[in-house]
């Protein structure tokens, strides 16, 4: 059913746009190595004017239309979840799109035809899946992992990609990060959008409100953990072929053993620091030096040189003392 809309869309320009999207958002374009926000701050979309037809109303919290019955201009409030902020859209991954690439062209009439609301929106896999161009990102595997996640098993099709990755505002983040702290905060905000906003949470769950601070009271230095790692580090199961884990686990299966991260083979090297780990290796004496660039994880960052020096000093001191003791005993006997 979903593919029907794909066929109906203007396939050629859409494909061109998608290739543009992939080049920019996945960092294949050298120009895309700069942070996304800076990259697009002065870039005007080729569809800017065309999109303005939509943004004229949907870009603001209120809109005005002409009522042919009363023959007056009428101002109305735009439903909050229908508002798309231009600055967010034009810095997001899909910024080079025309609105009608994903939404039906019939939306250009007002009032919009009611049946359009019944259209199923695309999911990530509809555009990114089963295509060699995106093969390296394993969207199909992401889809499989997602379908095994607690989000999907608990909610079924009601939980779509868009619940976390808003198509109008989502930005690829951690791989282009110049500030790990900001990237972590950005990613965690995706979870907090629902998990710290009970009104949104209620849309998908009948559970009582969860107090995240209380639930994580067992965690030492809670504030530091929340600002230094993403929720998914503990709450998603790692998959070696995926850069970002998508299989969100039920709470009783989340990581709770400190040593999973606080050890030489820290789990963070396969999750939060996976992009850096793939790109650089350091032999400056520090194991897990990638983590060291941004933070310090007790038990994970170890300095080989210091370890060796400390062992030498320890055993040398021990040897000297034993020798001293032995000599004292020998000379005392001779007295």
């Amino acid at each position: 059913m979903k593919y029907k809309y794909w066929r109906r869309s203007r396939v050629i320009p859409f494909t061109l746009l998608l290739s543009n999207l992939v080049y920019v958002s996945f960092g294949l374009d050298p120009a895309a190595s700069a942070p996304l926000v800076a990259d697009t701050a002065f870039t005007k979309s080729a569809f800017y004017d065309q999109n303005e037809q939509c943004f004229r109303c949907h870009g603001n919290s209120k809109y005005t239309y002409f009522n042919p019955v009363s023959e007056k201009d009428v101002s109305a409030t735009m439903c909050e979840n229908r508002v798309i902020h231009r600055n967010e859209f034009y810095t997001a991954n899909h910024r080079s799109f025309a609105c009608v690439d994903c939404h039906a062209a019939e939306y250009d009439t007002f009032p919009h035809p009611g049946q359009l609301r019944m259209e199923a929106p695309y999911n990530c896999i509809d555009c990114h899946g089963y295509d060699e161009q995106y093969a390296q990102y394993h969207f199909e595997e992401i889809e499989e992992e997602f379908q095994q996640s607690t989000h999907y098993t608990a909610n079924g099709d009601a939980f779509t990609c868009w619940k976390c990755h808003n198509p109008h505002t989502y930005r690829i983040n951690i791989r282009n990060s110049t500030s790990m702290q900001q990237s972590i905060a950005y990613d965690n905000q995706i979870c907090l959008n629902c998990h710290s906003d009970f009104e949104r949470f209620q849309l998908l769950s009948d559970r009582e409100e969860i107090n995240l601070i209380q639930k994580h009271e067992w965690l030492p230095n809670q504030g530091l953990h929340f600002s230094q790692v993403r929720c998914i580090e503990c709450h998603a199961r790692l998959n070696d072929s995926l850069m970002v884990a998508h299989r969100i686990m039920p709470k009783d299966k989340s990581v709770k053993r400190c040593v999973e991260c606080h050890s030489q083979n820290s789990l963070l090297m396969s999750s939060l620091y996976k992009f850096q780990a793939k790109e650089s290796r350091s032999d400056a004496g520090f194991l897990n030096s990638i983590i060291l660039n941004d933070a310090f994880v007790i038990g994970a960052n170890r300095n080989i040189i210091l370890n060796r020096i400390s062992l030498i000093v320890f055993f040398a001191s021990l040897g000297l003392m034993l020798m001293h003791l032995l000599l004292r005993m020998i000379f005392k006997r001779n007295d």
Binding site: P220, R257, C258, V259, E260, H262, S263, G299
Partner: peptide, 22 residues
């Protein structure tokens, strides 16, 4: 124990070591 913690061999379990150390 904390500095050289490993999943399968620690002098003291990490969380316990943190609490005792503090």
């Amino acid at each position: 124990s904390m500095q050289f913690s490993e999943p399968n061999r620690s002098l003291v379990p990490f969380d316990l070591a943190v609490s005792i150390h503090n």
